[in-house]
C-alpha cells in the first residue's frame, strides 16, 4: 500500500435529523491502486457510505477526503457503478452513446472519444453491441455497459455498489474477473461494496467489514491471496477458505472472531 487515496474519518450519517443513524462512526482508508471490498449485513449503510465517498450524500458527521481534499461535491476523476444497472443506463441512447456521454465534458477530440468508447466496449466484451439499446441486452450485458461507461471515463477512483448482485452466478463470475482485469489494466483505486462474502475476499486486497446499523468498522482483514486470482484455483486455496470464514464470523457476530 502506498499513500492514502481515500480517507474516511469518523463518518456518521442519519437520514433524518434526530432519526436513527445509518452510519455511526466509520473510519478506514484506501491506498493508491488498492482494491478494497466493503462487506456488511444488509441495511448496514454500505450504499450510503459509498454515496458519501462519491459526494452524492453529505455526511452528518465526520468527513471523507480524497487526495487530502474534503469531499463536498462529486470529485473529478471518480466513477460509480450502481447496483441498479437497468436504471442507471439511459434507455433512449444506444450503448455507444451511453458510454460516450461522460466523455463530452472532457477536452477530447472526436477521434479520441471514438477510440476510448470502442476500447472500453471491447474490454468488457461488447464490441459488437455498440449500436444496440440497453433494453435489448441481458442484465449481465447491461452491467457491462455501465462498467464500460466508467472505464471509458478513465476514473482514478472507481466505486462499485453491489454491481453484480442481480445477475446469475455464472455471469457474476465472469463479471468479477472482468472487473479485476479492468482494475489491473488501468491501475485505478477501487472501492467495492458487496454483501457477498466470497466475492469480497475473491476480489480484494483488503476487506473492510461493517457492523449492523448504525455501522462502525467491525474489522479490516488483509486478503493474503496471490494474484492473478482464478475462479477455481483461488477459491480452492486453504487461505481463501480461512479468510472467507473469518469475514463470515464477523458478519454474523461482530466483534467476535479473528481480529
Amino acid at each position: 500500500m502506498t499513500s492514502a487515496r481515500i480517507e474516511v474519518e469518523h463518518l456518521g450519517y442519519r437520514y433524518a435529523a434526530g432519526g436513527a443513524p445509518a452510519l455511526d462512526d466509520v473510519s478506514f482508508s484506501v491506498g493508491q491502486g488498492e482494491f478494497v471490498s466493503i462487506v456488511g449485513p444488509s441495511g448496514s449503510g454500505k450504499t450510503t457510505l459509498l454515496r458519501c465517498v462519491a459526494g452524492l450524500a453529505a455526511p452528518t458527521s465526520g468527513e471523507v477526503r480524497i487526495d487530502g481534499v474534503v469531499v463536498r461535491d462529486v470529485p473529478p476523476g471518480l466513477a460509480l457503478v450502481f447496483q441498479d444497472y437497468g436504471r442507471s443506463l439511459f434507455g433512449w441512447m444506444t450503448v455507444h452513446d451511453n458510454v460516450d456521454l461522460p466523455l463530452r465534458r472532457r477536452a477530447l477530440s472526436g477521434e479520441e472519444r471514438q477510440r476510448r468508447v470502442a476500447s472500453a466496449l471491447a474490454e468488457v466484451g461488447l464490441a459488437g453491441s455498440a449500436a444496440r439499446y440497453p433494453w435489448e441486452l441481458s442484465g449481465g450485458m447491461q452491467q457491462r455497459v455501465a462498467i464500460a461507461r466508467a472505464v471509458a471515463y478513465a476514473p482514478q477512483i472507481l466505486l462499485m455498489d453491489e454491481p453484480f448482485a442481480s445477475v446469475d452466478a455464472q455471469t457474476r463470475s465472469d463479471l468479477q474477473d472482468m472487473a479485476l482485469s479492468v482494475w489491473r489494466a488501468h491501475g485505478s483505486t477501487v472501492l467495492f461494496v458487496t454483501h457477498d462474502i466470497d466475492e469480497s475476499v475473491y476480489l480484494a486486497d483488503r476487506v473492510v467489514v461493517l457492523s449492523p446499523a448504525p455501522a462502525t468498522v467491525a474489522a479490516e482483514i488483509a486478503v493474503d491471496l496471490p494474484r492473478p486470482r482464478d475462479q477455481v484455483e483461488t477459491r480452492a486455496m486453504p487461505a481463501f477458505v480461512t479468510q472467507r470464514a473469518a469475514v463470515a464470523r464477523l458478519i454474523r457476530r461482530p466483534g467476535v472472531g479473528t481480529p
Partner: peptide, 17 residues
Amino acid sequence: NPLHTETGRLYGLGAAD
C-alpha cells in the same frame, strides 16, 4: 429517475447536456 440525474452529476455533465 434519480439514478439518471446522479449519473449526470457523477460524470460532470453541464446544464445543457
